[in-house]
Each structure stands twice: as C-alpha cells, then as structure tokens.
C-alpha cells in the first residue's frame, strides 16, 4: 500500500470530475462497440430472411392469414407451461384485451 495522500479542494474536485469522466468515456466506448456488433448481427439475420422472401415474391402471392385465435409460438425459458399460461392470462386481463389479440414472443424467468 502506498503512503496516504491528502488532497486540496482543487485537486479533489479535479479527481472526482476526472473519475466520473473516465467511467462515462469507458462505457460510451463500450456502447459503441456493442452497437456495432449488434448491427452486424442484425444485418446477418436480415440477409437470409430477404433471400427467403425473394423467391416467394416471384410466385403468385397467396394471401397469408393468421388462424383466428392463434397467438403464435411462445418460446419458454425456465418457465413451466402452466405458469406461462397463467402469466398470459393475467397480462390479457390487465390490458383488458382478448388473449387471441396479443402476441407473446417469449417468457423467461428473471432470477
């Protein structure tokens, strides 16, 4: 351990501002990196989807209808199907909307 430092008000304030700035700069740079990585992944995901969509456009477009009452597939992570059903029912009740008008993408237990 180094010897103890006593700071004057000026250098104390300067250190505090510098420290806060370092945290901001560090996390801003990290944010930039994550945004770039995220964009690369989103673009990669979009590319095969477009490829699939292209031949479909050439063929006579059949009207695609969602079956009435279908809520689509719900991905469950660490969640019991019974709990998931209960959660969906509660959300529908709280929003005052019929369950078949809502779309649940995934349900995950927050630990």
């Amino acid at each position: 351990m180094t010897s103890r430092l006593t700071l004057g008000i000026g250098s104390n304030l300067l250190d505090a501002i510098l420290g806060y700035a370092v945290v901001f700069i560090g996390l801003t740079l990290l944010m930039t990196v994550i945004v770039i990585v995220g964009k690369i992944f989103t673009a990669k995901k979009a590319a095969p989807a477009e490829e699939k969509a292209a031949p479909a456009a050439a063929a006579p477009a059949a009207p695609k209808k969602l079956a009435p009452g279908s809520a689509g597939d719900v991905k469950l992570y660490d969640t019991d199907p019974r709990d998931a059903a209960m959660i969906m029912a509660i959300v529908a009740n709280k929003l005052d909307k019929p369950l078949n008008e809502l779309r649940f993408r995934s349900i995950k237990e927050v630990k």
């Binding site: 104390n12 304030l13 250190d15 505090a16 501002i17 420290g19 806060y20 945290v23 901001f24 560090g26 996390l27 801003t28 990290l30 944010m31 994550i34 945004v35 995220g38």
Partner: peptide, 19 residues
C-alpha cells in the same frame, strides 16, 4: 446498449461522496 450511459450516470454518487 444506451443503458450503459445510465449505468455510467449512476456512478455520480461515488465521486460526489469521494469529494
């Protein structure tokens, strides 16, 4: 990722208390 800015902003108390 913008959440990181909020995580940075909330370190204000660290440096305020340090001062």
């Amino acid at each position: 990722p913008k959440s990181l800015l909020l995580g940075a902003a909330a370190q204000f108390g660290v440096f305020f208390a340090f001062f």
